[in-house]
Amino acid sequence: MTSTTNAAPAAGEHELVITRLFKAPRELVFRAWTEPQHLSRWPGPKGFTATSDAFDCSPGGFYRTCLHAPDGTDHWVRGTYLTVEPPARLVFTHAWEDDRGNPGPETIVTVTFEDKDGQTLMRFHQAVFTTLASRDGHGEGWNQSFDRLETYLTEIAP
């Protein structure tokens, strides 16, 4: 696994951990994270839409996605997939771009998927944030995304 370029603050304080239980099979939840037709449906806070101009979900593969806000602003994020282990684990880098397309501080996202009686226990970890405000903002955005993912999964789950 590749380490981030950020200096490592105190463990835990600059990390984001979210756990969710989805009423959908693990394979489907994993595909929702790794297939373009699903990734256009749930990422981003409520009211946002998502489009990608690059997507290669394989180890070493690059992605670049735009989250379109309801107010018309665009928020570009990019990264590289470090680990892809269907249907159990994803690890990728995450960096927002500035107005010129330059990446900002990079974090590492690790998502694991565990079968729980036909449901999926998802554990999400993102680190290391440079500020607590950044961690908290990401927490709010990811939780709204996961609310949208839950709704989407109920629409497509068998």
Rank of each mutant, 00 (worst) to 15 (best):
T2G: 06
N6D: 02
N6G: 02
A7V: 06
A8V: 15
A8S: 14
A10Y: 05
A11D: 14
A11L: 13
G12T: 08
G12H: 10
E13Q: 15
E13C: 08
H14E: 00
E15D: 15
E15Q: 15
L21N: 13
K23E: 14
P25C: 00
P25A: 11
R26I: 03
L28Y: 12
V29G: 07
F30G: 07
F30D: 01
H38F: 06
H38L: 03
H38M: 04
L39S: 01
P43F: 12
G44S: 11
G44Q: 10
G44V: 09
G44D: 09
G44F: 06
K46W: 08
K46E: 13
F48W: 14
T49H: 01
A50I: 09
T51L: 03
T51M: 04
T51P: 00
S52I: 07
D53K: 01
Y63H: 13
R64V: 06
R64M: 04
C66T: 05
L67V: 08
H68T: 15
P70K: 11
D71N: 15
D71W: 02
T73Q: 15
T73K: 14
H75I: 13
G79E: 05
G79T: 07
T80A: 05
V84G: 12
E85H: 11
E85R: 13
E85A: 14
P86A: 13
P87I: 05
A88G: 12
A88R: 13
L90G: 10
V91L: 08
F92V: 07
W96G: 12
W96P: 02
E97D: 11
E97P: 04
D99Y: 03
N102H: 12
N102M: 10
P103K: 04
P105D: 13
E106G: 13
T107W: 00
T107I: 06
F113W: 01
F113V: 07
E114P: 00
E114S: 14
D115R: 06
D115W: 05
G118K: 09
T120Q: 01
T120G: 04
L121R: 07
L121A: 08
M122T: 00
F124S: 01
F124N: 00
V128L: 14
V128F: 15
T130M: 13
A133M: 05
S134T: 02
R135A: 14
R135W: 10
R135D: 09
D136W: 12
H138R: 00
G141D: 06
Q144I: 09
Q144R: 11
R148H: 15
L149Y: 02
L149R: 04
T151C: 04
Y152H: 06
T154V: 09
T154R: 15
E155F: 03
I156G: 04
